[in-house]
């Protein structure tokens, strides 16, 4: 299992810990709780449920066990509860590697010989970040925003804000470095 699949499994286990749910209810709960997340396809929900079923982490609930997968409601097993508990008891490694696409691209932009190209990229990236930041801020301050919307927007805003501050600081550092070298 790659790490993306691991977190979908645990997410579904987590959602099921709040009560028995059908596949489509899980999909809906996912969309409500993680409103800004990458979309989760129905197919992925069912594929993950099948795997969880195979591993004995979830079980069909009640009378519906003979119906097709769309009709089946799932419930967490003891083993599933233990797997969820174990997952929650381990700390996520706090950024063991610095490998975001943004980080890489900015570093490369600062290396390439074509200064105008680099400048155009950095300015465009800054603008894109700023626009997204404004979009998310509008979303979370809208009177209709739910707590789930705000929590998701906050996460994205904090990261975009950090990216922008890092970008500015980096350019200042490069400029300082140049002033020192060329003076």
């Amino acid at each position: 299992m790659n790490s993306g699949l691991v977190s979908t499994s645990h997410l579904l286990l987590g959602l099921l810990s709040t009560g028995t749910m059908h596949g489509y209810e899980l999909k809906r709960a996912h969309d409500t709780r993680l409103p800004q997340a990458r979309p989760l396809a129905f197919g992925q929900v069912y594929a993950t449920l099948n795997r969880l079923l195979r591993d004995g982490l979830v079980a069909p609930a009640g009378q519906e066990r003979l119906a097709g997968p769309e009709r089946t409601a799932y419930t967490l097993t003891e083993q599933g509860r233990a797997a969820l508990d174990q997952w929650l008891s381990s700390v996520e490694p706090p950024m063991p590697h610095v490998n975001s696409p943004l980080f890489t691209k900015v570093v490369v932009a600062l290396l390439v010989a074509d200064v105008d190209r680099a400048r155009a990229y950095l300015v465009a990236q800054r603008r894109a970040h700023t626009e997204r930041l404004r979009e998310l801020t509008a979303l979370k301050t809208a009177p209709s925003a739910t707590v789930d919307d705000v929590v998701a927007a906050d996460y994205a805003i904090a990261h975009l804000d950090a990216d922008l501050r890092w970008l500015h600081t980096t350019l200042e550092r490069v400029a300082d470095w140049h002033r020192e070298v060329h003076s």
């Binding site: 600062l110 290396l111 390439v112 010989a113 074509d114 950095l122 800054r126 970008l167 490069v174 400029a175």
Partner: peptide, 14 residues
């Protein structure tokens, strides 16, 4: 530009 008009970039010269 939002990033400093004359901030010199490395341009491969680091």
């Amino acid at each position: 530009t939002g990033l400093g008009l004359d901030a010199p970039l490395a341009g491969g010269s680091r």
